[in-house]
């Protein structure tokens, strides 16, 4: 059962006196249950709009398309499923004159969440000591952490976090990353996290959907998306790199020198064949590593450098 499914969803914003803007364009997205799923895309690619559409804040264009949240159609059955969905969308929205704890209590009262859970969540985001302070006195990072605490109040089966690291210092970013990974692997929670920090998604997520201009351009396990966008390059370490490069070039490979006396072989679909070619000419491979592109390279390759 997918935690989230969007099939052919479109959203067009109509601006007074301006051209209509198509924020989502026949978007298809599936988030499997369990684990951490990243939603990646350049600004204006439709990440936040897709989350808003899922949560019923924004109406999709009428007509084709459908959405499921935890296997229930939304927005029709959103009131029935919302108790299992926690969300933080963009900036946390709280009453500035009230304390962090009181802000959580107001939400907890509305949903019948016991007060003990408020303290648990404050503890979870390390905000218990400052929970009595007014929200307007919080730093950006503390506000973000309170937003995450609010999203966790319901102990949701699906946790949606839109740019959760915004405003956090490096230690805070690391803590959020650990928290998200822990939640995503507790056997109960699915986490959908959007981020513009590619390295963050790479470290945090098991799978990823990449959006560009409101459409999905890639989706799947992070490693798979990376390899799909990968170059197929292989880095070979041998005692005599120059001679080995000549052998490989003679065998039809495209090669170039690499740092530290290595040879870089481009576009090698079967790295094992490289070992055999070199061994037949007396060059024994000490190390052979497939060069994996990082998500940033993959992202730029997939989106055509729109970021």
């Amino acid at each position: 059962m997918p935690a989230v499914e969007m099939v052919g969803v479109s959203k067009t914003y109509r601006r007074r006196g301006g051209q209509p803007f198509r924020a989502l364009d026949d978007l298809h997205m599936t988030v499997a249950s369990g684990g951490v799923h990243g939603l990646l895309g350049p600004n204006g690619s439709g990440k936040t709009t897709s989350i808003r559409v899922l949560l019923g804040l924004v109406r999709p264009d009428p007509g084709a398309g459908g959405m499921l949240l935890l296997d229930r159609p939304v927005p029709a059955e959103l009131p029935g499923v919302i108790a299992d969905v926690g969300a933080l969308v963009e900036t946390p929205l709280f009453s500035p004159g009230l304390s962090g704890r009181m802000n959580l209590r107001l939400l907890a009262e509305a949903a019948g969440v016991p007060r003990s859970r408020i303290e648990e969540c404050l503890e979870l985001v390390d905000l218990r000591d400052r929970a009595g302070d007014r929200f307007k006195g919080y730093s950006l990072g503390m506000k973000q952490r309170l937003g995450i605490a609010a999203a966790l109040l319901k102990a949701p089966r699906l946790l949606i976090l839109d740019e959760p690291s915004n405003g956090l210092d490096p230690a805070g970013i690391r803590d959020v990353r650990e928290l998200v990974r822990r939640l995503g692997h507790d056997g109960r929670t699915t986490v959908l996290v959007s981020s513009h920090l590619l390295s963050e998604v790479q470290q945090m997520c098991d799978s990823v959907t990449i959006l560009a201009r409101g459409r999905q351009v890639a989706s799947g396990p992070v490693s798979e998306v990376l390899s799909r966008a990968g170059s197929g390059d292989v880095r070979v370490t041998v005692p005599d790199p120059a001679a080995a490069a000549a052998v490989l070039a003679a065998a039809g490979y495209s090669v170039s020198p690499a740092p530290d006396g290595q040879v870089l072989v481009h576009g090698a679909p079967a790295p094992g064949a490289i070992t055999r070619v070199l061994a037949e000419r007396g060059h024994y491979v000490e190390e052979l590593v497939r060069v994996t592109p990082d998500l940033e390279s993959a992202f730029l390759a997939i989106t055509g450098g729109q970021a």
Binding site: L55, L57, P75, I82, G86, A87, L107, A110, A111, A151
Partner: peptide
Amino acid sequence: VALLFWVP
């Protein structure tokens, strides 16, 4: 708006 995440 935040309340709508709880009561849509």
